[in-house]
Write a protein that binds this DNA or RNA. Sequence first.
DNA 1: CATCAACACGTAAGCGCTTACGTAACAGAA
DNA 2: TTCTGTTACGTAAGCGCTTACGTGTTGATG
Lengths: 332, 332
Amino acid sequence: MVTVYDVAQAVGLSIASVSRALNGQTGVSEATAARIVEVAAELGYQRNDVARSLVAKSTQTIALLLPDITNPFFPELVKGVQTVADEHGHVLLLVDGAGDRARVAASMAVLRRKQVDGVIVVASALDGDADALFVGVPTVFLDRTTNGPGASVSVDHEAGGYAATRHLIELGHRRIAHIAGPRDLEVSQRRLDGWRRACEEAGLPTHDALVASGDFLEEGGHRAGIELLDSGEEFSAVFAANDLSAIGFLALCAQRGIRVPDDLSLIGFDGIQLSRYTTPTLTTVAQPILELGARACDTLLHLIRGEESQSRIVLANELTAGASVRAIGGTR
Amino acid sequence: MVTVYDVAQAVGLSIASVSRALNGQTGVSEATAARIVEVAAELGYQRNDVARSLVAKSTQTIALLLPDITNPFFPELVKGVQTVADEHGHVLLLVDGAGDRARVAASMAVLRRKQVDGVIVVASALDGDADALFVGVPTVFLDRTTNGPGASVSVDHEAGGYAATRHLIELGHRRIAHIAGPRDLEVSQRRLDGWRRACEEAGLPTHDALVASGDFLEEGGHRAGIELLDSGEEFSAVFAANDLSAIGFLALCAQRGIRVPDDLSLIGFDGIQLSRYTTPTLTTVAQPILELGARACDTLLHLIRGEESQSRIVLANELTAGASVRAIGGTR
DNA sequence: CATCAACACGTAAGCGCTTACGTAACAGAA
DNA sequence: TTCTGTTACGTAAGCGCTTACGTGTTGATG
């Protein structure tokens, strides 16, 4: 391996000058700087960033922790993060499988040792007292609006739930069921809140039998759907707390011969790409996933630099029309 | 930051003993080792891996380069890689957007500086003379079976193309069109070869008008579909070189009122999750994507350790039944 | 009792780099 | 001339760690 020392020797100068020249710093004449750069190139010198990081106390590395990269929500998020990181000369460590607190704790230990400059964590499964895991490390939380250390970026889940439900109400639906996400997740709660607010405002029922909890995955949506359909409860529309749940429910409808949207309207949440490929395509509250990732990364970089920056960023959702909802005359 | 020096001081020993104790090495008595570990924990000592990497000349970091994480083929691949990396105490650097040679070159420069222990590259868009980018870095190529440095892991694309086409032939199809991938990609070529071999064996036509090239994305499948349908050429089945192309073609069929599989049978390649959500669900040649990633990582770790290992791994595909094909009586 | 291996531990070098500080040369001002 | 400021460069420390080698102590062996 060619080191600064080799270059210095080859060009007949000290390693200090070589370092300065190679980093475009002042303190070397232009002429010698040019010569140094040239010789370095000739020798095929490649800077060793681990040595540099040791003295600089910065690795130009950030980590993204998420529970499951195969969940179609995340790839786009990753892209948003990666793009911004890349633009700023940072590199992205991906930690998949950060599903529960224990896994996150283990990962954070590794990342601390690796001296990452900061982390972005998708807070899906983080209990309240997880804050300790992140002290001393610049951190941005996604989908976590509660107080706590670090910054957070998310959409307004309550508003999204409200918008989805309003949409159904405006189409004439009077009994709207809800397939919720995991009960302990803040985002589930907020989306549920939005549904409830819209219903109550319109004088529609919101009793427990109209709500079934899923797990934000297809299977949970399927199960919750069974619960709802078999409850004897009447409803003409379903608002699912995320697209995957909606898709699981859609499969159930297909199995039972329930036509969507003819017999039942369905609306999802997230706006994952997959929602455009189902039959019918899914009407959904789309999150600006790419932007979410980008903003998260941006915010993190600010945190790292110690700059001021807004610490609670809330982006807007957008209702995306699919073919899974339809207007109805009156209550069914 | 607490360093070995701090621990040494607190326990009244030298940093050498501390280092030995903390790494479970010989050279310290069990009693003192225990004391050191205890004190280190008390002080909240966290090893600094960048310092360690500097002397060890190993970062326990591998990189995965791929063109586009939002392509549904890749998340599962990432998971396969990540899982194995994690099991072996390595950490994963994800480089997205490694779409063309220039980007890969730039990324490799960064990764070299960062002293990654090895890289896995999805060779989608790598021209022949890209080999130089990887010299000196343990490298595993995915989907690249040509000779070259490093190891490679892939499925047998030719066999997959053959199997897909055979399947259609056995269902009675006599004129089978092919939507190919980008012409300069080896995998496209091999899948095309498989199609051709199966057709020729069965005495079926393989002239140029039966083949249209896409880009492995939906749009390309759509475009290629138009080309085929408007060519006046007759065919009762289409073998698309990957699922996304097939899905693009499927959308085209929907637009034109062509019923799949009633009017036309369609078979894809890859077995991405998305293929299970289309209408109809896609019959496809499934690659063991997760395993592909896992084996790639495994192989890379072997390379890094300098151990012997098979350098050209070829996994088997499996034809996965969907609802996009049907038998027909005779030639249409 | 002398010898020596085995063990526990310390000293110090060095991984490749950045950077504070020192020094010599030179130019301009008094 | 002398003083001062500026520029170009070198010296050396130090980032936090591992590890080759040296030293002193112990217990076993003859």
